[in-house]
Design a protein around this nucleic acid. Sequence first.
DNA 1: TTGAAAGCGGTACCAT
DNA 2: ATGGTACCGCTTTCAA
Lengths: 373, 373
Amino acid sequence: MTLIARDGQGGAVGVQDIADALGISCGTVDRALHDRAGVSPATKRRVLAAARRLGYRPNLAARYLSSRKHIMIGVSLPLEVAYFFDDVREGIVEAASAFEPLGVKILYRPYKRFGQHEVEALRDILEEKVSAIVVAPGYHERMRADIDKATRRGIPVVCVVTDAPGTERLTSVSVDRFAHGALAGELMGHLIGGEGGVIIFIGMHAVVDHEQKLRGFESSFKQFCPRGRILGVVEAHDEAEEAYQKCRRVLAQYPSARGIYVATANSMPVIRALDELGLSGKIKVIGTDLFPAMVPVIEAGKMAATIYQRPREQGLTAVRAIVRFLTEGLRPPPQILLDPAIVMRSNLSLFFGREPVSLESASQTPQAEAVQR
Amino acid sequence: MTLIARDGQGGAVGVQDIADALGISCGTVDRALHDRAGVSPATKRRVLAAARRLGYRPNLAARYLSSRKHIMIGVSLPLEVAYFFDDVREGIVEAASAFEPLGVKILYRPYKRFGQHEVEALRDILEEKVSAIVVAPGYHERMRADIDKATRRGIPVVCVVTDAPGTERLTSVSVDRFAHGALAGELMGHLIGGEGGVIIFIGMHAVVDHEQKLRGFESSFKQFCPRGRILGVVEAHDEAEEAYQKCRRVLAQYPSARGIYVATANSMPVIRALDELGLSGKIKVIGTDLFPAMVPVIEAGKMAATIYQRPREQGLTAVRAIVRFLTEGLRPPPQILLDPAIVMRSNLSLFFGREPVSLESASQTPQAEAVQR
DNA sequence: TTGAAAGCGGTACCAT
DNA sequence: ATGGTACCGCTTTCAA
């Protein structure tokens, strides 16, 4: 050993150690480490080798303190559907606030409706100086060019809720949609006691999400309800009135139906139709997502279960993945799939109205410092 | 305004700003802010007032960099039951690694079996210089004194999996056990089609956890299975052989039983008994937790569902709560209840064998730095 | 009791 | 291309 460890903290190796070991200055080491201009290729190679050999790990606190570069995460999400994307945003803010000490900040650039003006919103964000971007692509083909552009500029893009397959996005966070449908199918099989016909409501077949849920449902319903049958698949295009009308029509057509699976958030019109026909509770309904109006419906037993896509978790997960990538270079798996949660009457209260750990009560005040060591 | 903002970053206020505003030195401000010795009460009051007025927020990166005090979290968990506590520990390590830039480190002091030598293990940890402690109290009465002692020393204690009610612990992280039981009850109601007798296996009535699950089950089973009946509650004391024997006996006594709810992890002996009696799949079983041996059982349809207590999430949550408390003074709610997850065949793969975001691939190497901005 | 100043580990700028 | 150094905001030590 030609070196004397500079510190007792388990021997963390810093730029200065590398510099000392090579007999050069820390400035040069910094330049070599970060691909900055003005280092001879030879020196650079030596530095990189030494860094690896000595096990260099950057001190992130020092870096943050020194560079004063904040990690600004641009968030572009639709304002509608509010109950869902508000929760996503809540998760994002929550995670960002946990990383505040690392200088993580959120730049929120919402747009009106899912799928509308999303490209413009993304471009706006690209104008600003952000370090990463969170988006929920409605029409991913339209977003592709800008997502790839951001990525090539070194700005990682993470998709939440929906994905933009085939793009250079860092990763996507969403619920496993096949599992979503499969859970619904398995549960439905149990609910209707292993036999009977069911009807499925989706948005449209063209939407990959809906199609995946549908396939999931079909695959497991077949297993868990061998004497069951899928009577029909209704496209309601996420329109309330359309769902209502088609529900009435399809029930008239199949009066023997024993279950309905609504693979989108569009379940309330179905409940209304069942209510009017006096079939609430008789026909078993499995819905998707969770919003205020559904609470009394579930409590009243008019909907047996709903598959919850955990928007808050999605937001949390996206930001955590970004921060780890940015600060530690840890590349997340190309796709992060959360497990959909089954919400029934017994656990409803755990999902609804649950507050995040309050951000207000954070120590703005010096008093709270006292608890530290 | 008598002050000119020192920086353009949104006007963050630091110790120096307070010092300037008061015409004193930053050293004094620091002492006043942290209850250190050697500040006149008058000065201290003025500093505190100014800090609040100016909206002082400590720069945590600077603090960490300067003080070189790491946040060492002492973790005292049993090695058994491994499949469960290993996952808790995995979550703890995962969360800690995310906060590594803040100097968060784990001091792991395991002990052999749940409930045994836990007091000694806790005392050992107290000897070391830790900033916080995570424990899973088996016999919380025995732990009380040491938990309170740690807390009084300024070392927050967080309970995971189990709680130590009535102690000064910072908070506890566990699954909502009433909801656990209630979910099982609701599901069971559906599984047996609204009528029939069921049998419940617990550890013992004296264990609060088990009693809570039992009450949850009873309450919802009554609602969802109005023509159902709880035939018996079996205490198996977490012993495999006992569970097996009692299962055979109770099934002989109630041949009409249509469902079994095992409220502890002790479900495999029950499955074995059912297998031998040729009742697998006929009698609906709802279990608790998830471990390797259960996977084929669920896949084969011998167990309809299991209620998963999400050990990894518990570990993650505990560490996050500790870090936020320590760094931001944010006090968590007195009890953190996670939602139990329903695992069935359709979502089994999402829970089992799921790897945490790999810690290995983290940037030990300077190359990964290049992705940063 | 208080002030002044030296770091902590990187970064960035100015010399060379 | 490289070295030297001031500085980020806070803590800590030494002087006064």
